[in-house]
Every structure is written in C-alpha cells, then in structure tokens.
C-alpha cells in the first residue's frame, strides 16, 4: 500500500513537471508572438474568468495573467 502511494506520488510529480514545462513553453511562445508587435495587448480576463470552472482559484487568475503579461518580451516593463 505504501509503495503504491509512493508510485502515485512519483507519477504525479512527473505529470506536474511535464505540465510546468508545458506552461513555461506556452509562456515563451506567448512572449515570442508579442515580441513582433510594438504595442501592448491586454488579456481578456473576463472571458477567462467565465471559462474558469475547474479547480484553479478564479481569484488568482488575475494575478497570474498580470505576471504573465509583465514577463512577456513585448510588454516588458522598462521601469524597475
């Protein structure tokens, strides 16, 4: 039983690592797409909130996408 739990833990860890890499790759691609533009493009947060019906906390979405936008090359903030 304990070894089954360890297997599940290891498997979940691998799945999370894959998802994290996929998220990183998608953010990199988002940045690449925006880098060709001279202007900023806002995320349609209302649309995303309407679609958020899973386990992810909807209240955290705004902060997540604000951070993603800030990290994208095309919208990088120059002031620090």
């Amino acid at each position: 039983m304990q070894s089954e739990n360890l297997d599940l833990l290891a498997q979940t860890r691998r799945h999370l690592a894959f998802l994290d890499r996929a998220l990183l790759n998608l953010m990199e691609e988002r940045s690449r797409l925006l880098s060709a533009l001279d202007q900023t493009l806002d995320t349609n947060l209302d649309d995303l909130l309407m679609r958020a019906n899973g386990d992810f906390d909807p209240e955290a979405l705004g902060a997540v996408f604000e951070a993603i936008s800030a990290g994208c090359h095309g919208q990088r903030r120059s002031a620090r």
């Binding site: 998608l26 990199e28 691609e29």
Partner: peptide
Amino acid sequence: ARVYAAVGGRHL
C-alpha cells in the same frame, strides 16, 4: 499549431 508546437518545446 502554435499551441501544440509550444507544448512540445518547439515554435512556429
């Protein structure tokens, strides 16, 4: 294609 390529670490 953009999304599926990116998930695999590639790009258009």
